Amino acid sequence: MKRTLMLMSLCALLCHTSCTSKKEEKEPETKLLVTSPLTMDTSIVNEYVCQIRSIRHIELRAQERGYLEKIFVDEGQHVKKGQLLFQIMPRLYEAELQKAQAEVRFAEIEYQNTKRLADSNVVAPNELAMTKAKLDKAKAESALSQVHLQFTEIRAPFDGIIDRFLVRPGSLVSEGDLMTTLSDNSQMWVYFNVPEAEYLDFKSKVSAQHPSVSLVMANNKTFGYPGTVETIEADFDNETGNIPFRATFPNPDGLLRHGETGNIRMLAPVKNAVLIPQKATFEILDKKYVYIVGPDNRVKAREITVGAELEDLYAVTGGLKDSEKILLEGLRKVKENDKITFDYESPRSAMAHLKLHAE
């Protein structure tokens, strides 16, 4: 019995000693990664919603009244300048032309007879002049009839793409009725609105006469050809505070069509930008913060002001100095006023694999 009690006491002592030693063991500290902001000249990407328009987009309307006799093309078809598109029944206008041509011949005969009489001093010169005026009037009416007949043929004024037909063969069309539209998509005009502050920055910082821009299409893919900003409209919109820009894009493959939408991306230079990685920040109630590592190796949260957003970086305009240290990794592992051990990585090394536009 005594031996049993001694064994139980010894086991309890060993167990207590083992637990105490485990409690006294310290968990190895995890080193976190710290860096500093990087000050350098860079470019930020400003993005604007845009509307894509054909360089020429016109309405094709009937110029004469009549029944639409024939359509020679199909919707969405590429057509050439001068190609016949629509034919309005021409018989009435052909008859009017024949009548006008007959009146011209009659007036010519009358003029020739009067001229012979005038040459023989049989009639007064005034009568010859009146006959000549009558001939000129007949010729003018004949030319006008010829124009009316030509208007029964609607031809393409330039190379382009035919849109949907608004009439069908047999339709009675009146002068001015819309038949379809025609788009010249060889180049595209892309319109986008720029806020006043960014317009002023653009005018003061962009030295190129026609700066290059890129177009992100509705499928989030970048259009394969860069465009150039060629025109800025004269006036600001007082309601929105924006001014319209127009960029021109080549469209050799015909991918862009009139009426598409997308986003314009335009680089804007920034001098002495204070850059930090986006992953070094966290957000609370729509405000961005970083952890500052103080001289005592304790972390403190500080709000920052982000002036511009790059692909992997923020350009900070307030709340941070380039001489301060910020926590780069392990933000979720710490809380306010924690003391940490860390490895320091230089700003250029920390941002070497990130996307930034150096000037």
Rank of each mutant, 00 (worst) to 15 (best):
W189K: 13
V229E: 05
P244C: 00
G227I: 06
A102M: 14
G170W: 00
S9T: 10
A95F: 11
D119G: 02
Q209Y: 05
M217R: 08
N46K: 13
V73E: 09
S349A: 13
S18Y: 06
T35S: 09
L85T: 03
S171L: 05
N121I: 02
E27Y: 02
Q278W: 05
M6S: 09
F202N: 05
G227C: 12
E359K: 10
R246M: 13
I326V: 06
K80Y: 11
D184W: 00
A218N: 07
K203F: 07
T228V: 02
M217I: 11
P125Y: 00
P244Q: 03
V270K: 01
R105F: 04
K31D: 14
E29V: 05
M40G: 06
R265S: 14
E108G: 08
P244H: 01
D235P: 02
K26L: 14
G254Q: 10
A133D: 10
L267D: 13
K221P: 07
D343Y: 12
G241Q: 01
I326T: 04
R348V: 12
I326G: 01
G259Y: 03
S21T: 07
K339I: 09
L215R: 01
Q146Y: 11
V122E: 06
T222Q: 10
I340S: 06
V299F: 00
E27I: 04
V229W: 03
F245L: 08
E69H: 02
E47K: 07
I340T: 10
C50Q: 01
K115T: 10
E25T: 12
L10M: 15
E94T: 14
F202C: 08
L354M: 14
V104D: 08
K321H: 07
P269F: 03
P252K: 03
P226R: 02
K31N: 13
K205F: 13
K333I: 08
D119K: 02
F86T: 07
Y111S: 03
E110G: 06
E25F: 08
A129D: 12
S186W: 00
K26D: 14
F342L: 00
L14Y: 07
K221I: 10
N126G: 07
L97A: 04
P37Q: 02
G259I: 03
Q63I: 04
H258T: 11
N126T: 12
E27H: 04
R61H: 09
Q98V: 08
W189M: 15
I44D: 05
T114Q: 03
E336H: 06
G227T: 08
Q101G: 11
V123L: 05
G241N: 04
N242E: 09
I243F: 01
E59S: 15
Y344S: 09
V190D: 06
A107I: 05
D322E: 15
L33C: 12
A124S: 15
L255C: 09
T30N: 12
H210T: 13
V173P: 11
A315G: 13
E359V: 10
H353M: 12
T20C: 06
M266I: 05
M217E: 11
Q98F: 08
R298N: 12
A133R: 01
N263A: 12
A208G: 03
E309C: 06
T231A: 14
F165P: 04
